[in-house]
Amino acid sequence: MAHPALRLPSSVEPSLPDERRRRGRGAASNASGRFEPLERVEEDDGWDSAAELPPFRTEVALETARTAITRNDSPDIGFDRSINAYRGCEHGCIYCFARPSHAYLGLSPGLDFETRLTAKPNVAELLRRELAAPSYKPRTMALGTNTDPYQPIEKTYRLTRKILEVLEETRHPVGIVTKSALVLRDLDILSRMAAQGLAKVAISLTTLDATLARQMEPRASSPSRRLAAMAALKEAGVPVAVLTAPIIPALNDHEIDRLLESAAAAGAEEAGYVLLRLPHEIKDLFAEWLLERHPAKMRRILSLVRETRGGKLYDAAFGKRQTGEGVVAWTIGRRFEIAARRLGLDRRHLKLRTDLFVPPERERRAGGGAQLSLF
Results as ranks from 00 to 15, higher is better:
S303T: 07
L374R: 13
T354K: 03
R40D: 10
H172M: 09
A366F: 13
R364N: 04
L105K: 11
R348W: 15
R293T: 11
K162Y: 02
V201S: 10
W289H: 14
A5S: 10
S224A: 10
D18V: 04
L8P: 00
V41M: 08
T211I: 00
E169G: 08
F336V: 01
L356M: 02
G78D: 07
L251W: 15
E90Y: 00
G368K: 00
A132P: 05
L276F: 04
K137A: 13
A287S: 04
T170F: 06
T156W: 09
L38E: 10
G110C: 06
F79A: 12
S82P: 06
I301W: 10
A236Q: 09
K179M: 11
Q322K: 08
A210V: 03
R309C: 03
R21A: 09
R57H: 12
P149T: 07
F56Y: 11
R342N: 13
A329F: 09
L164M: 05
H102Q: 15
A213I: 02
D112F: 05
D257Y: 06
S74C: 13
T70R: 11
D48A: 10
D48F: 14
K234D: 10
E217P: 01
D186F: 12
P295Y: 03
H172T: 10
L182A: 14
A51N: 13
R20L: 14
S224W: 15
P4I: 00
Y314F: 08
L53D: 14
L291M: 12
R158C: 01
P4C: 00
M1R: 04
A103Q: 06
S32A: 14
E125Q: 09
R23W: 06
R34S: 03
L190N: 15
A202G: 15
L275E: 00
G333D: 01
